[in-house]
């Protein structure tokens, strides 16, 4: 019986792993940290899985646990993250998809996002995932109005970083 639960969990996790990868990409700047955080997320998901009753989609539940892991639960090593590591971490931008100008724009955006704090990154993640504000508010544990206000502030902050 236990094996079946484990099997179904791992299958769901494999199908939804990109959610975790995307969150790791926002919260880490190098491959090793990405792998470490990803691993901690899978452990936390497995631990919390028995309590998951399917009231929401697996993907929704998974990204919430993953965000909580990135923001609160995961205890990083005290490695200092250098911005030069970020440059090497550009495996996610395929050159042939964009013209040089667009590519530069994208790199600048991701770099700017990395300068946001943990809560702001969570908001950006959910914004990029096209989550509505009621879901964003519920995930963070704040009111919808304040989620909108904060999102606008973040857009302003990003603008300032990109156009100093």
């Amino acid at each position: 019986m236990k094996e079946t639960i484990e099997q179904s969990f791992v299958q769901l996790l494999r199908e939804n792993q990109n959610i975790l990868h995307k969150i790791c990409r926002l919260y880490t700047s190098d491959m090793d940290s990405h792998k470490d955080l990803f691993q901690e997320m899978t452990i936390q998901l497995w631990k919390a899985y028995p309590k998951f009753r399917g009231e929401s989609k697996f993907s929704t539940w998974a990204y919430r646990v993953a965000l909580n892991t990135a923001i609160t639960l995961y205890r990083k090593s005290t490695k200092t993250i250098q911005t030069s590591d970020y440059e090497k971490h550009s495996f996610f931008i395929k050159q042939e998809d964009y013209n040089p100008e667009e590519e530069e724009q994208l790199k600048a955006m991701y770099k700017a996002i990395h300068q946001l704090n943990d809560i702001e990154k969570a908001l950006i993640f959910m914004y990029l995932e096209d989550k509505d504000y009621s879901e964003i508010a519920e995930t963070l544990g704040i009111s919808e109005v304040n989620a909108r206000v904060k999102m606008n502030r973040i857009k302003g902050k990003l603008k300032k970083i990109l156009n100093p």
Binding site: V10, E40, I43, L73
Partner: peptide, 13 residues
Amino acid sequence: LYKMIHKKSSSIV
């Protein structure tokens, strides 16, 4: 993924 879920947690809790 199987291998990962049984590794040691590095959680603050």
